[in-house]
Nucleic acid binder design. Structure first.
Lengths: 347, 347
DNA sequence: TATGGATGCTTAAACGATTAAGCGCGACCC
DNA sequence: GGGTCGCGCTTAATCGTTTAAGCATCCATA
């Protein structure tokens, strides 16, 4: 009843060439001692037969599945494609497959997702944690991608520095009053970004922070942010902590007849797919996901290859923060001279 | 040198209880003949020890890995999160894991990605093909999600019907001249959507199609679409074939001082994450990804469970097209009476 | 009282790979 | 010339699970 695997296996190659399975295995893996001539013969014959090693057999023997898990808080997050793509690429290059698991927002589902991956025998996993959750002990090496201020973080973009880049850019354009727009004040990432912006303000500049989530809890989802009013109050720059909020700000301002970047500037974070496409295209800060993924995966792979089991499962990397890159596009421009000096006196 | 798996295995449970491994296996799987009392004893002891069956051992014996592959043309496509989430959910519910593979846009990479999955021993895969590519024979069951007009398609949203919904909606609002905006005229999906729109036009309505890709090839990426000009020509509705193009259209029109929906209407496709968030929120058509994923996965699982190997690898499902749902938001409204009658004479 | 079958368990053989250990054999060294 | 070593291969054990087959035991039926 067992469905036969279609392809040939080691023993078929072995009997077909009149050698032992062990020799074939050694020849293909290049590990044992086999003569050059035989290696060549075995390899070509294996290729001819289209031999594909059985991961199951290998996994059973070696105790390694060759698969990494990727746990995401919510795949619907638009940042996900880049992360997944980068992780998949890095893992693939390192010879690993990637098993995905979505924790669908809630924390118990995150634990469940981790368990599912462990049951599937992943050799390690990359976790992008939900808000400030603590990773309950998984029985395999774990790399965490969140932000440097998260305890146990392995590697992440330097969100704080990204915030400073934004602040410096806006300062250079002459903006004095900056409205920071975030959607989740519990997110470590967003707090770091906002902190970076505030830390980068020059003397004579001030900022205020608008948490959209709070606004929505009070007045319902999809509500107006009231940015036109803010502009009238003297804010000339709207620094969103994610491109989604930036897009929201941009379209709301446009709808209200406020011109971007002539009247006010709008900036975002993450350089999501639509950022270059909207009009005006969005000035934002990009994470170097490829580098982050590569560091996370190679830290994970290094730990997996140390056969001596360390005490902790959390993996650490040498480089903990990867710089973010400012992408200047059309949505940011020189600050319009303040008209309402009464508001400026608030400084 | 072989790293020991941490948890207990069948034989540890067996010796610990003084029974044979086979009995333990039978008790846990409920397959053979074991007395009720012993089953209970074994199960509780296994749970106590935190026994987790080894997928590797099971896979080797049964020839099934319990893993499905998901091949995507380009994870960076913003539609991906929904597909991945839905597939992961459906697969998870059916007891399968999901291994992802990105073909990164190009066709040879798609073949490579498929091979990688086959090498990892997936039991089947879901493929969202790149444009009009033919799937080169994979040696496992394959479900294709594209559009009903693609040969070999397993299940997909009814893009044609979605187009008709849009057309009917715009017709009901009194629009006469509709500009269809697509980005890729080789995409089966986009062609079906455009075809559906055209087929749904009422007498007295006309449409024109603008392929952004062509425009970009001529004038460079990120170029203006010239929609304001089109609006002046008498087009009152802009029906984009994806929300990304809709967003592009919406922001360009707003930037040019054209009000949406007061002056013109904009519609999209797919109900992507930003659609409800932009101002005005986007009228669009949503695919029922959960249903599509469930159909695809269950067709795949059914085929996997038929141990008799059928000749073809392409899986078919009973329901081939899943209706799309019109989501009416703020970006579409009544057509403004035509001012340039000269243009209207073109009818 | 035999006989047949159901019951509850064990034995053992796979699945396909890896890898330590062993075994001739020729070369080399002192 | 005897001991040692390296080479090139084989033998055999092992990973953890599933499952067909076998073997007592006991109950029911003739």
């Amino acid at each position: 009843m067992v469905s036969q695997r279609p392809g040939p296996n080691l023993s078929r190659i072995a009997t077909s060439l009149g050698v032992s399975v062990a020799t074939v295995s050694n020849a293909l893996s290049g590990k044992g001692r086999v003569s050059e001539a035989l290696i060549e013969k075995i390899r070509s014959h294996a290729a001819e037969l289209g031999y594909v090693p059985s991961q199951a057999g290998r996994a059973l023997r070696t105790g390694r599945s060759g698969v990494l898990g990727l746990v995401l808080p919510d795949i619907a997050n638009p940042l996900f494609p880049k992360i997944a793509q980068a992780i998949e690429f890095a893992a693939s290059a390192a010879g690993y497959g990637v098993l995905i698991a979505d924790s669908r927002g809630d924390i118990s589902a995150q634990t469940e997702a981790i368990n599912r991956l462990v049951e599937r025998g992943v050799d390690g996993m990359v976790i992008v944690p939900r808000r400030a959750t603590r990773i309950s002990a998984a029985s395999c090496p774990v790399a965490v991608i969140d932000t440097a201020s998260t305890p146990g973080n392995t590697v992440a973009a330097d969100h704080w520095q990204g915030g400073r880049e934004i602040a410096a850019h806006l300062a250079g354009l002459g903006h004095k009053q900056i409205l920071i727009i975030g959607n989740n004040h519990e997110s470590n990432v967003q707090n770091d970004r906002a902190g970076g912006i505030r830390a980068g303000l020059q003397p004579g500049m001030r900022s205020e922070t608008l948490w959209v989530e709070r606004l929505e809890n009070e007045t319902g989802a999809g509500c107006r942010l009231g940015l036109a009013e803010k502009a009238r109050q003297g804010f000339t720059a709207f620094a969103a902590l994610s491109d989604l909020q930036a897009l929201r700000a941009l379209t709301e301002l446009q709808q209200e007849g406020i011109s971007v970047p002539a009247d006010v500037s709008v900036t975002g974070f993450d350089d999501l797919i639509w950022s270059p496409v909207v009009t005006p295209s969005l000035t934002t800060v990009r994470m170097d996901m490829d580098t982050i993924a590569e560091i996370a995966v190679s830290a994970l792979v290094d730990r997996i290859n140390e056969n001596g089991t360390r005490e902790g499962v959390m993996v650490t990397a040498e480089t903990e923060r990867v710089p973010m890159q400012l992408i200047i596009r059309q949505s940011s421009g020189p600050a319009k001279p303040a008209q309402k000096t009464s508001e400026m006196e608030n400084l």
